[in-house]
Design a protein around this nucleic acid. Structure first.
Lengths: 163, 163
DNA sequence: CACAATTATATTGTACACAATTTAATTGTG
DNA sequence: CACAATTAAATTGTGTACAATATAATTGTG
């Protein structure tokens, strides 16, 4: 099989190796799905010590970077909507990690702010990454490469969804 | 920074570039998570035509390869357990795509078999992959490479979980 | 300024994902 | 053979993921 400079599959009709593509894309989808679930499982025991789920942890990562932001802006960073975030944020509020309050200048908006306790949790979460990195069994180079490939894939998928 | 032959991170203490690892592994986890969700979203409209969800589709893929298998064996293929599979399989049964029946020789086991309708659905699902492959915007080579990297990652994560 | 359109969040309902527990059947050991 | 241990599914409960809808506030237009 010769290697082609432009072998992107851009329409359902243009591939001359349909059967191969079918298998590979199918495998990829499942590999992505199962690797993602495995990663969540790996995080689970580490985050359980902090009484957090993985999606809750992602929200806190966003807030540790910069808080006092709207639900919407968190959703844009994490590719999720209010249907997911509203109940999640209420749980974080109940745990005393964040505060939810309507913006006075536009009462449609809800501003999310870290409590002191929420800020302090960042220090306790510091060694979570290190353990994860160990579990991947990957080199730093491999982690970087996989990361950028996944971002490319995600971008492409999201762009196609929008069209 | 020099490139090292063995730069795997095998314990939380042995890295000499902790800060970089922290960022990269964090990015990777989120990239994996968000790419996987994007992939599911891409599948959704295609599978909606067949009245299937993505996890249901994965189960059918296993059964199309070989049916008359136990719940457990499906779970091993898909890395999921009865808590997830039992209700999912009941929905597929209600749709008339599969049949669930206790094995006579060991009544603890439930054997899953495709109905005629379930078998016929395979043909209708054939063009799903092609559309997905297009949406990835990746070359065949890239799909293959990403696939094998994800499998390595998953294997490593699952192995560490077992220890 | 009235009011339709838009925007931000919340709610509802369905479907996983998964830990923990339960139930029922089977196997291994004395 | 009795019975504890194991195995296979099912059940229960919590937490997303997400489409669809609702609610309330704001903005744009005539």
């Amino acid at each position: 099989m010769k290697s082609k400079a432009m072998e992107n599959i851009t329409s359902p009709q243009d591939s001359d190796s349909t059967a191969k593509v079918l298998n590979v894309d199918l495998q990829l989808c499942f590999a992505l799905y199962s690797a993602s679930l495995s990663m969540t499982k790996t995080y689970k025991p580490l985050l359980a010590k902090l009484k957090l789920t993985y999606p809750q942890y992602l929200v806190l990562l966003v807030l540790w970077e910069k808080d006092g932001v709207t639900v919407n802006s968190i959703g844009e960073r994490l590719f999720s909507d209010s249907g997911t975030l509203t109940p999640l944020l209420k749980r974080l509020e109940k745990q005393g990690l964040i505060q939810r309050q309507r913006a006075t200048e536009d009462e449609r908006r809800v501003i999310i702010t870290l409590t002191e306790q929420g800020q302090l949790l960042q220090a306790q979460a510091a060694d979570v990454h290190t353990h994860i990195a160990c579990s991947t069994g990957c080199t730093l180079t491999e982690l970087k490469e996989l990361n950028s490939q996944l971002i490319l894939l995600r971008t492409s998928l999201i762009n196609k969804l929008a069209t």
